[in-house]
Simulated assay, not measured.
Amino acid sequence: MSHASVMALALLLDAAFGEPRWLWSRLPHPAVLIGRAIGFLDQRLNRESRSAAQRKALGMLTVVILCAAALAVGHLLAGFGGLVEALCAAVLLAQRSLAEHLRDVTRALRLSAGEGRRMVARIVGRDTKDMDAPAVARAAIESGAENFSDGVLAPLFWGLIGGLPLMLLYKAVNTADSMIGYRTARHGDFGWAAARFDDLLNLIPARLSALMIALWHRQGGQWGEIALEARAHRSPNAGWPEAAMARALGVALSGPRSYHGQMQDFAYVNAAGARDIGPAQIEAEIAVLWRIWAMGLAAALALAALGAAV
């Protein structure tokens, strides 16, 4: 099977089955295994007694080890055939689980702002205890846009290029960034390579996700505004799908929020959009994400057909 055929099947498998609890309650999820490997390397190599330069070099070595292991395991599993490769690739996609998480926030927010805060805390890193209902909705929508790019389109993009090995490499680097890619005293140097490589791997997928959202919603004429706000975002990549999604839904995203008890005065994305938002807007985003997913599936099927015809 071609890479495109494998990815098309993986997309369908993920959409149909998502993350089956009966399986991952018995076996460790690949993300858990990757996380354990990163934690092991962090404990062994990232020691306070070492200089900043040493920790940065060892962080680079950590990324090299993770990438080499991911490529090796990916090639090994792909050797069992296209069906096994597609099953493994489906595990690395997060479309259905993302939609389910967002739907959980929607249901909770319909009960109360407090329930919404409790549920959205599972998918965002900001402080949630003082959020009102619109802030909960904004947080969920922002998380949905960013995680679609990181958890669906980026692995699909790299899978179309290099199959399961590149998907696993992307997943390893993305997980490393989420664990050690922070500008803290412990990880500012050691996690530098993971953060920068993750930025690089998401460079094209983030912009592609924004373009797909904009094209579907006929926002080509607003691409200049989307690009301007995306470039001003605190993240080099997250701002792209966020800015496009804000316009697709007609809402204002980002804005002031708290991290670790400190308020951050971030500018609004699509400031002219609606700010008094709630469950309806989260549901609208879920619909958008499935439409863009369908575009990705269509692209994979088209590439598979093209490859078969050549």
Results as ranks from 00 to 15, higher is better:
A70L: 03
A70T: 06
A72M: 04
A72V: 00
V73Q: 02
H75Y: 09
H75R: 14
H75D: 12
H75P: 13
H75K: 08
H75V: 10
L77H: 00
A78I: 04
A78L: 02
G79V: 05
F80T: 04
F80V: 08
F80E: 01
G81D: 01
G81V: 02
G82Y: 03
G82N: 01
G82C: 05
L83I: 06
L83F: 05
L83P: 02
V84K: 04
V84I: 05
V84D: 04
V84G: 01
V84Q: 05
E85S: 07
E85H: 04
E85K: 06
L87K: 09
C88M: 09
C88N: 04
C88I: 07
A89N: 05
A89W: 01
A90R: 08
V91Q: 12
V91M: 13
V91S: 14
V91E: 14
L92C: 11
L92M: 09
L92Q: 09
L93R: 08
L93H: 05
A94Q: 09
A94M: 00
A94N: 11
A94Y: 00
Q95N: 13
Q95G: 14
Q95D: 11
Q95S: 10
Q95V: 11
R96Y: 08
R96P: 07
R96K: 14
R96D: 04
R96C: 08
L98E: 07
L98S: 03
L98D: 03
A99Q: 10
A99L: 14
A99K: 12
E100C: 12
E100T: 15
E100F: 14
H101Q: 13
H101V: 14
H101N: 07
H101E: 12
L102I: 15
R103L: 13
R103C: 08
D104L: 15
D104E: 10
D104Y: 08
D104H: 11
D104S: 11
V105F: 02
V105C: 02
V105D: 02
T106N: 12
R107M: 15
R107C: 13
R107A: 15
L109D: 06
L109P: 04
R110Q: 12
R110N: 07
L111K: 15
S112F: 10
A113C: 11
E115W: 15
G116L: 13
G116D: 14
R117L: 11
R117F: 09
R117C: 07
R118T: 11
R118L: 13
R118A: 13
M119P: 04
M119V: 13
M119F: 08
V120D: 00
V120A: 02
A121E: 02
A121T: 06
A121M: 01
A121Q: 00
R122V: 09
I123T: 02
I123E: 00
I123K: 02
I123F: 04
V124K: 08
G125V: 02
G125E: 05
